[in-house]
Simulated scan of single mutants.
Amino acid sequence: MRAMATAATGMMAQQTNVDVIANNIANANTTGFKSMRAAFQDLVYQSQVREGALTNEAGTARPVGVDIGMGVQTAGVIRLNTQGGLTATENQLDVAIDGKGFFVVNMPDGSTAYTRDGNFQMSAEGTLVTKQGYEIDPGITIPDNSTSVAISEQGIVSAYVGSSATPVELGQLSMATFINEAGMKAEGDNLLRETTASGEAVAANPGDEGVGVLRQGYLENSNVNIIQQITDLITAQRAYEMNSKAIQTADEMLSSANQVR
């Protein structure tokens, strides 16, 4: 009886589904986090009778066949790159992206990562960095005697140094876009990496056509919808229970068949 193996694939699929939902709920308050959704596809079918098979010598044929499915498998986990809401923080180093694009992060090993988390800090040298201390491209250093920092919608960073009433331009934050944002690889620490699926990064400046602008003093919230996640969690739990019930029913049927004399 195939039902036991088929239902087992359904239980494993729902385990994956719950894992994805749990991660979404856990990151409901993570800055710039994008919720994910598990996608599934059916497995191969075992054909017992082909569609269109002749049923008699007169040439009549079966309108449908007898194809028994072998279950389900996880096709992928899709990142939903919709805009999260913006929250005012009144912190001059907090920057949110309002629209498409990613901040560019220079990693210690010379590679490049990308993030939507604009909760920036200053290193001991005054360089603009992420919470993990990774440098934000293109490596803007804020003078230690600066009284305030201004970041425009186009990413131009300026600072008021000492008692000067005229701001000093320090540089412009760079950004990147991707043809397939969902194809980027998540690495933790709110960082994403370029992959062959995402396509190569397209360099841009904030405010360019098709690229979002920056909002100083704001952070982008997670786009996780808690109510939807709870609903999805209940649905996954019920599906898991039904697959478990299918295995139990198949086992009982086999037991009955074994008792036939």
Rank of each mutant, 00 (worst) to 15 (best):
M1K: 02
M1N: 08
M1T: 09
R2C: 02
R2A: 01
A5W: 13
T6G: 05
A8E: 02
G10E: 07
G10N: 09
G10K: 08
G10C: 12
A13K: 00
A13C: 07
Q15K: 10
A22H: 08
N24Y: 03
N29W: 08
S35H: 04
M36R: 11
A38V: 02
D42K: 08
Y45N: 11
V49D: 06
R50A: 15
R50C: 05
E51G: 10
L54T: 11
L54M: 11
N56F: 04
V64S: 12
D67V: 07
I68V: 15
I68Y: 10
G71D: 02
Q73L: 01
Q73W: 00
T74S: 00
T74Q: 02
A75V: 01
G76L: 06
G76F: 00
G76Y: 01
R79N: 09
L80I: 11
N81I: 04
T82I: 08
Q83F: 02
G85D: 14
L86T: 03
T87P: 03
A88P: 10
A88G: 06
T89K: 10
Q92Y: 01
I97F: 09
D98W: 09
G101I: 05
F103Q: 02
V105S: 06
S111P: 01
A113G: 09
T115D: 03
M122R: 13
M122L: 15
T127N: 11
T127V: 13
L128A: 07
T130M: 13
G133M: 04
Y134Q: 15
E135W: 04
E135V: 15
I136G: 00
D137N: 15
D137P: 01
I140N: 03
I140Q: 07
D144V: 10
N145L: 11
N145E: 14
N145F: 09
V149R: 04
V149H: 04
A150W: 00
A150Q: 13
I151G: 02
I151Y: 03
E153L: 08
I156Q: 13
S163A: 13
T166L: 09
P167Y: 07
V168G: 02
E169G: 04
L170N: 01
Q172N: 14
T177A: 14
T177D: 06
I179T: 14
G183K: 06
K185T: 03
K185V: 00
K185H: 05
E187P: 00
G188V: 10
D189C: 02
L192V: 12
R193D: 00
E194H: 10
E194G: 10
T195G: 08
A197N: 14
V202A: 10
V202M: 11
A203Q: 13
A204N: 11
A204L: 05
P206H: 10
P206E: 04
D208C: 08
E209M: 06
G212M: 07
V213Q: 12
L214G: 06
R215H: 13
N223G: 12
I226F: 12
Q228N: 15
Q229K: 01
T231D: 07
D232T: 02
A239D: 05
Y240C: 07
N243F: 03
Q248T: 15
A250H: 11
A250Q: 08
E252S: 14
M253Y: 03
S256G: 05
Q259D: 15
Q259M: 10
